Lab assay of single mutants.
Amino acid sequence: MLYRITVRNADGEKLEIVVEMSEDEVRALAEELRKAGYEVRVEPIPEGEEP
């Protein structure tokens, strides 16, 4: 499935990426980023919607 991941650092800089991963993989990635001090938001992209 496609997911949009938005990551912000302490300075407020934002990075937005689209990935194709399983829900478990995305959850693990988000958890690791949060542990590293980043603010993370994950949104699933519905099938048929443009990323």
Rank of each mutant, 00 (worst) to 15 (best):
E32P: 01
E43F: 09
E50L: 11
G48D: 07
E25M: 09
V42F: 11
I17R: 06
K14W: 10
R41S: 10
R41V: 04
G37M: 02
Y38H: 04
E50N: 13
G37F: 10
L15C: 07
G48N: 13
A28C: 02
V26W: 02
V18C: 04
P44A: 09
Y38D: 02
V18L: 10
I17F: 08
G48A: 11
E13H: 14
L29A: 03
V42L: 05
R4M: 04
G48S: 13
E20C: 03
E43I: 12
V19F: 03
S22T: 12
A10T: 08
E20P: 03
E13T: 12
L29H: 04
R27L: 10
L15F: 09
D11L: 15
Y3A: 01
V7M: 15
L2W: 14
V26C: 03
P44G: 07
G12L: 04
G12I: 04
D11A: 14
E32D: 08
P51A: 08
E43S: 10
V7T: 09
P51R: 02
P46R: 09
L33W: 15
Y3D: 00
E32Q: 14
N9W: 10
V7A: 14
A36Y: 13
E32T: 15
M21A: 06
V7F: 15
Y3E: 00
I5D: 00
P46S: 09
A30F: 05
L15T: 11
V18T: 06
A36I: 06
L15W: 08
A28N: 09
R27E: 10
I45S: 06
P44F: 08
R27I: 10
E47R: 12
E50D: 11
R27A: 07
E43A: 10
Y3Q: 01
Y3L: 03
S22H: 07
E31N: 13
I17K: 04
S22G: 08
R4Q: 02
R34K: 07
A28M: 08
R34F: 06
L33Y: 15
L15Y: 14
G37I: 00
R41H: 08
V18R: 06
V19K: 06
I5S: 00
A36E: 03
R8L: 13
R8E: 06
R41D: 05
R4D: 00
V26P: 00
E23G: 07
E25H: 08
E50K: 14
V40D: 00
E50R: 12
Y3C: 01
V26H: 00
R27M: 08
L29I: 06
E20G: 05
I5F: 05
L33V: 01
Y38P: 00
E20W: 15
V7H: 02
V7D: 00
E47V: 14
V42E: 01
P46T: 13
L2S: 07
N9P: 03
E23V: 10
E49M: 11
A10G: 12
I45R: 04
K35G: 06
D24H: 10
I17N: 02
R34E: 05
E47C: 03
V40R: 00
V19D: 01
E25R: 06
T6P: 00
M1A: 05
M21Y: 03
N9I: 09
E39R: 12
P51F: 01
K35N: 05
R34G: 05
T6Y: 15
M1V: 07
E49A: 12
A36H: 08
T6Q: 05
E31C: 15
L15R: 14
E49D: 10
E31T: 14
A30L: 11
R34N: 04
L29Q: 02
E49C: 04
T6N: 04
E13P: 08
E43T: 12
M21Q: 02
D24Y: 13
E31I: 13
R41M: 06
S22Q: 08
E16H: 07
L2V: 05
V40Y: 02
V26L: 04
R27W: 14
L29R: 04
R8V: 11
D24S: 13
K14T: 11
D11M: 13
S22F: 08
I17C: 04
G12N: 06
E50F: 10
G37Q: 01
P44M: 10
S22L: 14
E39P: 01
G48M: 14
E23Q: 10
E23I: 08
E43G: 03
L29W: 10
D11P: 03
G48T: 14
L33R: 01
V7Q: 02
R41E: 07
E20R: 05
K35V: 04
V40E: 00
M21F: 04
E13D: 10
E47S: 14
E47M: 15
G37R: 02
E39K: 10
A30D: 01
E39V: 14
A10H: 13
K14H: 10
K14Y: 11
R8H: 09
Y38K: 03
E25I: 05
A28Q: 11
G48K: 12
E43Y: 12
R34Y: 05
P44V: 14
K14V: 10
E43V: 13
V40N: 00
Y38L: 05
I45N: 07
S22P: 07
Y3I: 02
E32M: 15
S22K: 11
N9G: 09
L2M: 14
V19P: 00
A10D: 05
L15P: 02
E13N: 15
D11K: 14
M1R: 08
E43K: 05
E20N: 14
R34L: 05
I5M: 06
V40Q: 00
A30I: 07
N9Y: 07
P46F: 11
I17A: 03
